[in-house]
């Protein structure tokens, strides 16, 4: 095991870096897109609600691998060349944003409706009320389930391995094939995933306590 790390560390670290980069990008964008569709789902405008619902139901109910393959295969065919890393990150972002939308929506709905009424009566628009009054309170409520989504996101980034995204899982596969040391290799890979997810997990717990 130590041997694997000692000899293969450049590949492993590159994989770790890719996994981390993909996770950070996907986390950032899925949080924004997810929150946006969460708001769509609760807007007074019915058309917006329908759009929000369709987005969430479609992307929540298709396997991540299928979404990713779509971007990897279809986009280069008709639109523009993209590499596996980009395709995988886009797929992961869209897939995760559907789950985040559901999480954030439940958070928004658990904020007292009086907060929105108070803000709107005070002269703020719907979006201003959301931004300054409702969302800050909703996020506080959804930090624990959001933490779950973030951790799932990091682990799901292993989908990059299927589209040659050179992530940790991909490099692990390569090393295992080249060295035939399957067990120790994936042991190391597992530990490297923990290096990302454990601090994330503890940070979310810290946030939860701090904001409570």
């Amino acid at each position: 095991m130590i041997h694997i790390f000692a000899t293969q560390w450049p590949l492993l670290l590159e994989g770790l870096g890719r996994t981390l980069l993909c996770s950070i990008i996907a986390l950032f964008f899925s949080l924004i897109i997810g929150s946006l569709f969460a708001i769509f789902e609760i807007m007074p405008n019915k058309i917006m609600r329908v759009i929000g619902n369709i987005y969430v139901e479609v992307f929540r109910n298709i396997p991540l691998l299928v979404i990713t393959m779509f971007f990897f295969v279809v986009i280069p065919l008709y639109v523009t060349k993209i590499n596996g890393f980009t395709a995988g990150t886009i797929g992961l972002t869209i897939y995760t944003s559907a789950f985040i939308a559901e999480t954030v929506r439940s958070g928004i709905q658990s904020v007292d409706p009086g907060q929105m009424e108070g803000a709107m009566s005070n002269g703020l628009t719907f979006w201003q009320s959301m931004r300054y009054v409702v969302l800050p309170q909703a996020f506080k409520i959804v930090i624990p389930p959001l933490g779950n989504q973030f951790i799932n996101l990091v682990k799901n980034s292993s989908v990059l391995a299927f589209v040659a995204g050179f992530d940790l899982m991909y490099q692990g596969n390569m090393i295992a094939n080249n060295t035939l040391q399957t067990m120790p290799t994936f042991f190391v890979v597992g530990i490297l995933y923990l290096v990302i997810t454990m601090p994330l997990s503890y940070y979310m717990r810290y946030l939860e306590k701090k904001l409570a």
Partner: peptide
């Protein structure tokens, strides 16, 4: 309002 609806945050 009856229940004030001050911004809790």
């Amino acid at each position: 309002f009856q229940h004030f609806n001050l911004y809790a945050n």
